[in-house]
Design a protein around this nucleic acid. Structure first.
Lengths: 235, 235
DNA sequence: CCAAAAGTGTTACCGTTACACCCATGG
DNA sequence: CCATGGGTGTAACGGTAACACTTTTGG
C-alpha cells in the first residue's frame, strides 16, 4: 500500500473504529468473563483494550468486527451482534473517533487463544477484576453487560456461551451467573424442557437417573421454525 | 465557513450521516405513521428521505439527530433513541456512507409541522403507503418498526405517542394498532391500572361511569422509582 | 330508543413458585 | 454410609383469557 497516498474531503470527517466486547463463561469459577488484548505497539502500548480498530473503506462494520476477532484473538464463526455506536466528542483524546461497538459470545473460556498481530497478550478477565480501561471502554462494557443480561432472558443466546453439548445443570448455572440471582432448579428444568428445544444425546441404553447429567444440544432448526409460527423464547 | 478548507487524512474515511425514523400515531385513522421530508435541493431533489444528514465534527450523533429533527421538521424535545448503525458498502451509490439511525416518537400526528431548510414538504405516511425510499431506507424503516413493536411491550414508550393527557381507550387502540392484534379491553385496562402508573385527571365531582372516558397521564416519576426497586413494565 | 362506548365483574384455566422427595454414586 | 448432585413430583397461588353485564349518551 502506498503510504504517501492521502485522502482529502471538503468537510472534516471523524475516524470510525469497531470495538468488540467478547464474553465467555468460565464454568469452573462460575464467572462471566470478557476478553481483552494487551497492545504490543504504540500508542497506548501495554494497555488492555477490547479487540477492535479502524474500519477499512471497503468493509462493513460487521466484516470489520469479524476481521478483528480473527486478527487479534484468533476467534472465528462465533455469535456476533452490533451493540451500540458511541460518539462522544472527547471519547478519544487523539482525535474525533466514533466507535461502532459489537458484542460476541464464545463457547467456554478454555480455548487456546491465538495472540494476534500487534498484540502482546490475550486474556480473560472476570467482570470484577477488569483493569482500568482506556477511553469510554468501561461504558461500552457496561452497556454490553446490560444487553447480555436482558437478551439472555428472551433470546436463546445463552447456548452460545456453552459447548455444543451441555447438561441442564450447566445451563442452569450459566443463567444464575449471568442474571446474578438464584433460580429454582426444578422450575428452570421444567421450563426449558417444556419448550422442546433440546436434543437429548444421552446413552439411551443405560437407565441411569443420576451421576453424570444428561447431555443435550440446542435444536436451532426447531427454534427457527417455531419462531416463524409465533413462538417466543423466554426464561 | 471557509469553503476552500480541505481536510486530509492518511487513510480514506467513510462519511457519517444520521437518519431519523419518526413515528406518530394517527388516532383518527388508527394508523402508525412515519414522517418523511421532501428534498428541495439536489441531489435527489423530489425524493422523500427520513430527516437526517451529515454529522458535524463537533457534535455527537445524538446531538446531530436532535438538530436534524429541529432543522428539517421543527420538532423539539421528543423521545429519541439510537436504533442501529447501517454500513453496507453500496448503501449509497455516491460514496461510502455509514448511517447511524435513530427513531423518534411524536405525540400525535396533528401538530403543524414546520418545513425546514432545503425541505420542500413534510408529510406523514402510513406504513402501507410509504413511497419508494432511496438507498437502504426501507431496511432502516423495517428495523425501526420491529424495534418499536418489541419495545412497546416492555417499556412505557407508548405514552410518547399520545398527548400528555389521554384516555384508556386511546392507549388501548394504540397498542392494538402497533402490535396489530386484538387485545381484550377489560384485561388490558386491568393490567395497566394494576401497575398504578396512571394519574387520574377526571373531574372527581361527577360520578359518570360513561360517555367521555376518564383522563389519565403517565406518572413518569413513579415509574422511575419503581424501576429502581426492581419493577418492570410489561403488557 | 337503541347502538355504541366506557367501565366493571366473574370464572376457568394454566403457568409459576416453593417446596419436598427419590435415586445413584463417589469419597 | 452419607453428603452431594441429578432428577422428579405436587400443591397452592396468582395472573391471564374469555366473556358477560351494566351504565350512559349521542344520533
Amino acid at each position: 500500500m502506498d503510504k504517501s497516498n492521502e485522502y482529502t474531503y471538503k468537510y472534516p470527517r471523524p475516524a470510525i473504529t469497531v470495538d468488540c466486547v467478547i464474553f465467555g463463561f468460565d464454568k469452573d469459577q462460575l464467572q462471566l468473563k470478557v476478553l481483552l488484548t494487551k497492545r504490543a505497539i504504540n500508542p497506548y502500548i501495554g494497555m488492555w483494550p477490547f479487540p477492535g480498530g479502524f474500519i477499512n473503506i471497503d468493509e462493513t462494520s460487521d466484516e470489520c468486527a469479524r476481521r478483528k476477532l480473527k486478527e487479534e484473538a484468533g476467534l472465528e464463526s462465533i455469535f456476533l451482534e452490533q451493540l451500540y455506536t458511541f460518539s462522544k466528542i472527547e471519547r478519544d483524546p487523539r482525535e474525533r473517533i466514533i466507535s461502532i461497538a459489537y458484542y460476541a459470545l464464545v463457547r467456554s473460556t478454555d480455548y487456546i487463544l491465538n495472540i494476534g498481530l500487534n498484540i502482546e497478550d490475550v486474556q480473560w478477565f472476570s467482570l470484577d477484576e477488569i483493569p482500568l480501561l482506556a477511553f469510554d471502554h468501561q461504558e461500552i462494557l457496561d452497556v454490553a453487560v446490560e444487553r447480555l443480561k436482558g437478551k439472555i432472558r428472551y433470546q436463546p443466546i445463552g447456548f452460545e456461551l456453552l459447548p455444543e453439548k451441555f447438561t441442564l445443570p450447566d445451563l442452569h448455572r450459566l443463567y444464575e451467573t449471568i442474571l446474578q440471582r438464584d433460580i429454582d432448579r426444578g422450575n428452570f428444568r421444567k421450563k426449558i424442557l417444556s419448550m422442546n428445544l433440546l436434543i437429548d444425546h444421552s446413552d439411551k441404553q443405560k437407565n441411569r437417573p443420576s451421576r453424570g447429567a444428561k447431555i443435550y444440544s440446542f435444536d436451532k432448526n426447531r427454534y427457527e421454525s417455531l419462531t416463524k409460527s409465533g413462538f417466543y423464547f423466554e426464561i
